[in-house]
Amino acid sequence: MNLKALMEKREELQCVMDALVSAADTEERAMTEEETEKFDKAEKEIRAIDETISRADRVRKLEKPEQHAEENTEAAEERAFANYVLGRASELRAGEQNMTMSNNGAIIPTSIANRIIKAVKDRCPILAGATIYNVKGTLKVPVWGKANTTHDIAVGYQTEFTAITADSGKFTSIDLGGYLAGALVLIGRSVENNSAFNVTNFIINQMAEEIAVWIEGQLLTGTGSDAAQGALNTTTTMAAAAATAVTADELISLQAMVKQAYQRNACWTMHPDTFTALRKLKDGNNRYLLQDDITGEFPYRLLGKPVYVSDNMPTMAAGSKAILYGDYSGISVNFRENISVEVLRENYATQHALGVISWFEFDAKVTDNQKLAVLTMKAS
């Protein structure tokens, strides 16, 4: 039994009943025979759905009380949230259905906020592949390296009863703090009159899309020393021979710059224009380098690895970092404040809209330069 589908159907029927009553009230008249018939039919279906859900809940509680109690809580949070957004509930008591009231609205329940976070990762492969932390304050990520150009841990054959010469490398650290970021989506209040509109899914998808595109840009290119620094800041780089073109040999060399140990999860990332240019490259046997891949997540493979296309990557231009290759886990991300979302009902009343605003605090830096390599176009 699909309880979620039943609840969505119930919401649609409730919207139909509300619209019928509202129409009669606005025109200061009694409901027509046709409207009454529709109203009674919707009410009958709602009662049938309620009875079905009630029976299902009783059975499910007998099977696994704790699990189904959690599922019921999530369903209750989603219903309460949808009713609040659609104006069916003018206010909510603080803490009811895990919804916290603020001066201007309600903070989205944790269960719905978590769905937004998951959707962000689904839309943003680099975030899904990055090394993610949730640490308050400043996170120090240890990085191992040589003590200097000659000192490192040395392994070799030894002779019994002969002391081993001690040598060492050193640990340095990369600091991950937190920079405040936010996104705002406006939703027209006309959705209240649309019985087929799933407001919860709309908000989740819209917020996730806005956040994912922005975070992807930060994790790829970054903003600078005063904010997150993206994967293109890796120190493993090579220069192209031309300012606006790439050769097959350069791609082979770039791929080889990432050590074999990190090749398993490596992929290519580039701008759509760069992808189009590479799509025309051929090898010595007149075969295209980019091969179709209908079996994997990505539709194309280059030198055996998937290709990810992003508008956030620079195009092939003089001095630009046009192609990224490697394992995304080489960049570390610290979400010092998890994504929180709040509904603003009053701020945009004059626009016949409500706002859904998201806040989060994060930082990102490359913490393993061996996993990521960048091709930089020749300077003009």
Rank of each mutant, 00 (worst) to 15 (best):
L3F: 07
L3Y: 07
K4W: 10
A5C: 02
A5L: 14
E8Q: 12
R10W: 11
L13A: 04
C15N: 12
A24Q: 04
T26K: 14
E28N: 14
E28C: 03
D40I: 07
E43H: 07
E45W: 06
A48G: 12
I49H: 03
D50G: 10
R55D: 09
P65T: 15
H68A: 01
E71P: 01
N72E: 15
N72W: 14
T73Q: 12
E74F: 07
A76G: 05
R79A: 09
A80F: 09
F81K: 02
A82Y: 03
V85P: 00
L86H: 02
A89F: 05
S90I: 11
S90L: 12
S90P: 00
E96W: 09
E96L: 10
Q97W: 15
P109V: 04
P109E: 09
N114A: 11
R115V: 06
I116V: 14
I117C: 09
I126Q: 02
I132T: 13
I132G: 04
Y133F: 08
N134K: 15
V141N: 03
P142R: 00
P142Y: 02
E160M: 10
F161G: 11
I164L: 13
I164D: 13
D167M: 09
L186I: 05
S190I: 12
E192T: 15
S195L: 13
A196E: 13
N201C: 00
I203C: 02
I203Y: 04
I204R: 01
I204F: 03
M207A: 03
M207L: 12
E209R: 11
I211K: 00
E216R: 06
L219D: 02
A228M: 01
L232Q: 01
A240Y: 02
A242V: 08
A248L: 11
A248V: 12
Q255G: 02
Q255A: 11
K259I: 08
N265A: 13
T269E: 06
T274C: 13
T274E: 06
R279V: 11
N285K: 12
L289R: 07
G296V: 06
Y300R: 13
R301S: 12
R301I: 13
A322K: 00
I323P: 01
Y328G: 03
G330Y: 03
V333P: 00
S340K: 07
V341K: 02
V341I: 06
E342W: 00
R345G: 05
Y348I: 06
T367G: 06
D368I: 05
K378D: 06
A379Q: 14
